[in-house]
């Protein structure tokens, strides 16, 4: 399997409503994939299924970890999925507001470290080294993202754009192989969006990450994505390269009458 993530016929019902209807999607290693569609199309629902927040009613989600066999992750606990290499950001920022910026990133290291209660209390050398590593690694992630000036500030006091980037930093600290970004550019000005674009390119080029991106900013999507999936009313209506998507009549129809139509061309 050269796909790091494979979704097959995923279906999710809420009461009588089908939020996702037999959706399929693949992400190859080191590929940037975008998931677009009008509001309420089921994009975030798909994210929540992928990250274990919802358990889908039918279908398969297969993840290929760096080592070992592909795993079916339906119904797995959220933190186990993160351990398998999927890390996400949230559409409505969900940072740990009362913790410092550095600590937010340090939390991301949790699932890659081991120290327990006894380690915390007696602090043997192994725990000491581990703790130092956590701090160092977190700090270098902050350097990478460009947030070191806020290192000891409380996350809730950060400017909006910095909070969005901190969410990415925190997700990076989990050592993911697939990064799931839920509308990372929402509310950003063009300059911030430009910086975000560069950051995602760097993650792809330098860290060889696979990225699944939900975004409404079509310029960003078209610049970044190598492959695009379009959802509408919980169903996949199109997939393909950016060129193919812009010319797809079903996509144009789904967006017609919506203002984003202008952006798509």
């Amino acid at each position: 399997m050269d796909n790091v993530l494979e979704v097959k016929n995923l279906t999710m019902n809420f009461g009588g409503i089908k939020a996702l209807d037999r959706v399929s999607l693949e992400i190859k290693k080191n590929q940037i994939v975008a998931l677009i569609g009008p509001n309420g199309a089921g994009k975030t629902t798909l994210f929540n299924c992928l990250t274990g927040i919802y358990t889908p009613n039918a279908g398969d989600i297969m993840v290929q970890p760096p080592q070992g066999k592909a795993r079916r992750i339906n119904g797995m606990k959220i933190n186990h999925i993160t351990e398998l290499g999927l890390a996400r950001t949230f559409q409505n920022i969900r940072l740990f507001g009362g913790m410092t910026v550095l600590e937010n990133v340090m939390i991301g290291r949790h699932c890659r470290t081991r120290a327990g209660i006894a380690g915390a209390i007696f602090r043997p050398n192994s725990t000491r080294t581990e703790e130092n590593d956590i701090v160092d690694q977190s700090y270098s992630i902050l350097e990478y993202i460009g947030l070191t000036m806020y290192v000891n500030d409380l996350a809730r006091n950060l400017p909006y754009g910095a909070q969005r980037r901190l969410e990415i930093a925190r997700a990076l600290a989990c050592d993911p192989q697939i990064l799931l970004l839920d509308e990372p550019a929402a509310g950003m000005n063009p300059q911030e969006t430009g910086e975000l674009e560069q950051l995602i390119v760097r993650l792809w080029r330098e860290r060889h990450l696979s990225v699944l991106l939900i975004e409404h900013d079509m310029k960003l999507v078209m610049n970044l994505a190598q492959n695009i999936f379009v959802l509408d009313y919980g169903e996949e209506i199109a997939r393909g390269t950016p060129q193919e998507i812009t010319q797809n009549p079903a996509v144009i129809k789904a967006y017609l009458g919506v203002e984003t139509n202008a952006e798509i061309n």
């Binding site: 959220i78 933190n79 993160t82 351990e83 009362g98 949790h110 915390a120």
Partner: peptide
């Protein structure tokens, strides 16, 4: 410690805390 930070993260946002692998 690692455990203590996990507790505070749990207090701040239970869902995000799990999504970060706790």
């Amino acid at each position: 410690s690692r455990i203590g930070r996990a507790w505070v993260a749990l207090r701040e946002d239970e869902l995000a805390c799990q999504a970060m692998g706790i």
